[in-house]
Design a protein around this nucleic acid. Structure first.
Lengths: 225, 225
DNA sequence: AATACCCTGACAGATTGTGTCAGGGTCGAT
DNA sequence: ATCGACCCTGACACAATCTGTCAGGGTATT
């Protein structure tokens, strides 16, 4: 089973601080050296910072495995609350990611803290979460575009209700108390503009188009803003 | 790549304290349910403490030999944003703690992640931060009391502007969009009550008394709520 | 040079991973 | 007791991959 071997390699790399040669791994795991090279390639494809230097061996860099972390009570409060805030206010993928990140952090806490981590009496509540509307439906593609520095083609509805389409280069996303604001260079207007994510009607990114379900463009409390 | 999926399964199992069904995993990872069962089998073959109960779902036990690995881009987004949200909306000590926690997390990232971490174009902005009022002045002692399970003696001003004092046992703190809400057992009224932190006028904890500066009890936008 | 590593491509055959179909089990609710 | 919602297993055929072998090329140190 390849998965087993890859986990074993990871384990060995984690334990040994010193470089370990592919040949050694090959012998230990009863495979050919070529197979080890290929495993290393897939590890690197997975994002593992394994460096192989000619004449030396393989080593794994920091940051792949999360080392044990120590946080003081205030810092723990901040993390728990932060992740819950994001989970409450972000879109689906972002909320999920917040949960995963939270679980990972919890997993590397020292034992005394781990118990109390998930029981912290800190909660985040968002009006958005309750209304479960689609005002943040576009958060995910917008974040992706931001990360990849890609342009977006959006259909927007301004304050006066007029619709328009724009080519924009996303620059930053800001979480306001109730609204997400996308700062961007608007190529159509050749100027910097801010766009409320909840006023977007469709977003096109690298060919893929995201659309809001009809009839849910605004919800009540947003209309009052 | 199967290895990727197995790590993803591990990540998702870590999140949920409650069992998660194979079907859910199958949907999330875009494979058939059968594949999930097989992945579970190899996970168990690897010695991972995953249990599956009929009619319930899968759960992972504590103390798995491999620590979790790096944060994926969405998780990093969640962390950055979460810490900035807390920094923007928390009281002084909590905001500071968020910055410290952020720095610690940043320190354990691999080099490539570290570069982008602090530059993520995700921001949090809070009206509270701008008005810089004292509506959250009591957050810190309240959180401390919550942590230590101590009673508080507070001076409170209710919706109608009437003042009163209460002995309370703090139970939970909730971050609403604009307001912090403290849930507590009110010993004076012998009932569960919610208190808005910004309506507190003084807080006494283990002999120490915290007071708001006079004349800043409310600020404009809060009065409009 | 020689050595000791890392690395890559190609190829054929073995291996495995996968979805589908078809079951069997437990548990709790109706 | 029947149902539904799960976990779980076996079998099968096809596709995908993994693997060893052979044949190179690279970069350091000795």
């Amino acid at each position: 089973m390849r998965v087993l071997r890859i986990f074993a390699i990871l384990d060995r790399l984690r334990v040994h601080r010193h470089p370990i040669s592919a040949q050694l791994l090959a012998d230990a795991l009863n495979v050919s050296i070529r197979t080890i090279y290929r495993d290393m390639a897939t590890l690197q494809a997975m994002g593992a910072p394994v460096r192989g230097e000619g004449g030396v061996g393989y080593q794994i860099g920091k940051g792949y495995f999360l080392p044990p972390l120590h946080f003081d009570p205030d810092e723990l409060d901040a993390i728990v609350l932060g992740m819950r805030l994001v989970a409450a206010r972000g879109d689906g993928p972002l909320a999920d990611a917040a949960l995963r990140a939270s679980a990972k952090i919890n997993a590397v806490l020292s034992d005394e803290h781990r118990e109390t981590y998930s029981d912290r009496p800190l909660l985040a509540y968002s009006v958005q979460a309750e209304t479960a509307d689609q005002s943040i439906a576009f958060l995910s593609p917008v974040r992706a575009a931001l990360r990849e520095r890609q342009r977006l083609y959006i259909s927007y509805r301004d304050l006066k209700g007029r619709g328009s389409t724009r080519h924009i280069r996303p620059l930053g996303l800001t979480a306001f108390d109730r609204v997400w604001l996308l700062t961007a260079w608007c190529e159509t207007r050749a100027d910097f503009r801010n766009f409320r994510v909840d006023r977007m009607r469709s977003v096109e990114r690298t060919g893929e188009t995201f659309r809001r379900e009809p009839g849910k463009e605004f919800n009540d409390y947003l209309r009052t803003l």
